[in-house]
Structures are given as C-alpha cells and as structure tokens.
Amino acid sequence: MARNPSSLFQAVHKQLSTASTHVLQYHGFVEGGYPDVVLSNGSAQPHGELHRIAQRMTTAGVRAEVFDGENWPSVGATKNPQAKHTREIGGRFYHMEHQPRVRDDAWLRTAMVEAVAAELG
C-alpha cells in the first residue's frame, strides 16, 4: 500500500499533508549485515532530525543508521510516494525500518518510540 501512488492511502496522505506536516512510517525488514534500524526520508539527502533520532536510538543501545543514497539501499524508501509528496510540499518525512530484534522486544520498541518523541516533541 505504501508504494502504490494510486492507492486510497496515498490520496488520504495528500489530503492531510501540508508544508508543516511531519509523517512517520514504521516498517519492518529482515536483512543480514544491516543495522537494527535504518532511517530515511526517501532521498539521498537526509534531514538533520533523522541523524539526531539515530543518535538517540544508538544511545538507547540499538544500532541505527541513516540512509544516505548509498548505504542500506533496499530500505531507503526511495520509491515511497508519501515520502516524495511530503518532501515536495516542504514537509518532513521519517521512514524507519526495524529488524526483528527491535520489533520483538518490548523494551527496544519503547526505546525507539521514545527516541522519536524526544526529537520531534
């Protein structure tokens, strides 16, 4: 659904988004050799909040990295139409991919939510 530019999900996203919108998508993946969490805005030019969230996650004990156009390409959200639309209108998009180690552990899931909340308020 998140990758279909003709979906109802995308249509609603467009209706609800403005230049002041912050969109957070939480996804899961399984990929050997990748960090526990990969953050992205769907482009090779990540915004500063992504780096600060990754640092907060790392401080909480989870290896978090930011997609920069080269590292972690399979989870960079580069084909995500919500990311594209949000960037185009000047909003902020936060795409987070989590390995099973994080998704399956209540303490780590809570730490990830708190890292995002601490940065975004």
Score class of each variant (00 low, 15 high):
Ala19Phe: 12
Ser43Trp: 11
Ser7Ala: 05
Val62Glu: 08
Arg56Pro: 01
Asn80Ser: 05
Ala83His: 09
Leu39Cys: 10
Val12His: 10
His22Glu: 14
Gln25Cys: 02
Val66Gln: 04
Gln45Phe: 13
Ile89His: 10
Leu24Met: 08
His85Ser: 02
His27Gln: 10
Ala44Pro: 14
Arg63Glu: 06
Tyr94Lys: 08
Ser74Phe: 04
Thr58His: 04
Pro5Arg: 11
His13Leu: 07
Ser20Val: 13
Val113Cys: 03
Glu119Arg: 10
Val23Gly: 05
Gly33Val: 03
Gln25Arg: 03
Leu120Val: 15
Gly69Phe: 12
Arg63Ala: 07
Arg101His: 01
Gly28Ile: 08
Val113Pro: 00
Ser40Asp: 03
Lys84Asp: 07
Gln10Met: 09
Arg3Met: 02
Val102Lys: 03
Gly76Pro: 09
Asp36Gln: 09
Gln15Lys: 11
Gln82His: 03
Leu8Thr: 12
Leu50Val: 08
Leu8His: 14
Met96Ile: 07
Pro5Ser: 08
Ser6Ile: 10
Glu114His: 11
Glu119Cys: 12
His27Glu: 03
Val12Gln: 11
Gln10Asp: 12
Gly48Lys: 14
Ile89Asn: 08
Lys79Tyr: 06
Asp68Tyr: 13
Thr59Lys: 12
Ala83Lys: 08
Pro100Ile: 04
His22Asn: 15
Asp68Pro: 12
Gly90Ser: 09
Asp105Asn: 12
Phe29Asn: 00
Pro81Lys: 08
Arg101Gly: 07
His95Cys: 01
Asp68Lys: 14
Ser43Ala: 15
Phe9Trp: 07
Glu97Thr: 01
Val30Phe: 09
Ala60Arg: 04
Val12Leu: 14
Gly91Glu: 10
Val102Tyr: 01
His95Lys: 01
Val62Ala: 08
Glu97His: 00
